[in-house]
Design a protein around this nucleic acid. Structure first.
Lengths: 224, 224
DNA sequence: AATTGTCTGATTGTCAACAATCTGGCTCCC
DNA sequence: GGGAGCCAGATTGTTGACAATCAGACAATT
């Protein structure tokens, strides 16, 4: 910790960057409902920008998978099928197990403190119960820990691509279930094992943790 | 095989699409040397197109990792460090092991025929020795088999993002080593195990296959 | 000597108009 | 009835000009 810690990263100054962020937020929070149709001109007008930077922003979201582009028909906010969800979870399990293997030897007391801090933040966010999306972001931030610690840039990049999809689904699920977010103590074991000395146990727990996450949330999707 | 098999996919009609392909090829073959500096206007003039679609194409390549954008300084063809290579290989090992686990039960006689055909094509391409990049594409196509068979779209997408980076490195390596490509029989065991009934042995072999690939090729990189 | 201020050419960011293309529905013919 | 041809409106693709921003060099200041 140095004396510059108070500095916040300055916000994106380009229209494209800000647009990506704004659209991501709108999609992820469900303010733009799944399946909804948009067009470039319509969006550009609504945002008060021209189509150039908007197109670049859109392409980024399409690439991540938040939007689907059907040429000459319009843009559509992604819909999630059961298969999508299973794919997201199975890939995520894979990635996070790998991340823990890579990060295991790099754990330092400071890093473990950081992990605990993230969990505290998650709990705090759940108890505050102000912004319903807060806990979701906090949970994802907690899970980001192992990816960051691994030092594996490509892996972190993969996680960052997957994250918005998870976020999208969490928010969708939460809305359908009357804003019931993650439980306070849901990550207690996760933290304990991550701080311990049994990598095998941690990896096993990840399988459980993820499978449980999938099972308890998959119920309300009726699609094929 | 049906009677429409002769149909070839029609080429991309948009400037953006064609530009992505062309730039990808140029980077991957080393015709645009690693570290080389480019600018948007320069490229747009050279390609005879305007900057709009070019920018979108560039962004795609930056996202994949083939180009690096340093704002207001220029675009640079990616350079590969030893760490990059280790990351590419470790992630790839992960993904391909996962792909085989997912694909294992889906193997049909037809699918295995397809796999053998891909290996034949690889061998043919090596023996023909015309286009030095042919064997590289054929080898990647062989490895794509398990991803396609898995039916896991997200996984396939991850592989498709990783592929150009591998291709880039292979070509780079080949140029440095006087065009010595993959060996004729390099995938014999791979094919045999993939056709057999011991998933564990296949997964173990993948570790070996990849580690060997990394070790025999990592030599000539002197970077940190 | 080192830090800060200022200028300039280069580079990217943005815009608004225009062109190309597609979709969906309609007609017409068989 | 149904399939080919065609049309209108909508949507995306493309362009060239203009604006904003930056890196690097050099001067001024301490």
């Amino acid at each position: 910790m140095n004396h510059l810690a108070a500095l916040k990263p300055l916000e994106d100054t380009t229209i494209r960057g800000r647009t990506v962020e704004q659209l991501r937020r709108l999609v992820v929070t469900g303010e733009l409902a799944a399946g909804m149709r948009l067009t470039e001109t319509e969006l550009a007008d609504a945002l008060g920008i021209s189509r150039g930077p908007l197109r670049e922003a859109i392409r980024e979201l399409v690439d991540i998978g938040l939007l689907v582009s059907k040429p000459y028909k319009g843009l559509f906010v992604r819909e999630i099928t059961r298969k999508d969800l299973e794919e997201i979870y199975s890939l995520r399990t894979m990635l996070e197990r790998f991340a823990f293997q890579e990060a295991w030897e790099k754990r330092t007391p400071e890093a473990l403190e950081d992990l605990k801090a993230r969990n505290k933040k998650l709990i705090g966010s759940i108890e505050a119960a102000t912004d319903p999306l807060g806990p979701i972001e906090a949970e994802l931030h907690l899970h980001s820990w192992c990816y960051e610690l691994s030092g594996h840039r490509l892996l972190l990049q993969s996680w960052n691509r997957l994250k918005p999809n998870l976020q999208f689904y969490f928010a969708m699920h939460q809305q359908a279930h009357e804003r019931k977010g993650p439980k306070r103590r849901s990550h207690d074991l996760y933290i304990r094992l991550a701080s311990g000395n049994d990598l095998g146990a941690m990896l096993d727990h990840l399988n459980d943790h993820m499978r449980q996450g999938l099972e308890t949330t998959i119920g309300f999707i009726d699609c094929a």
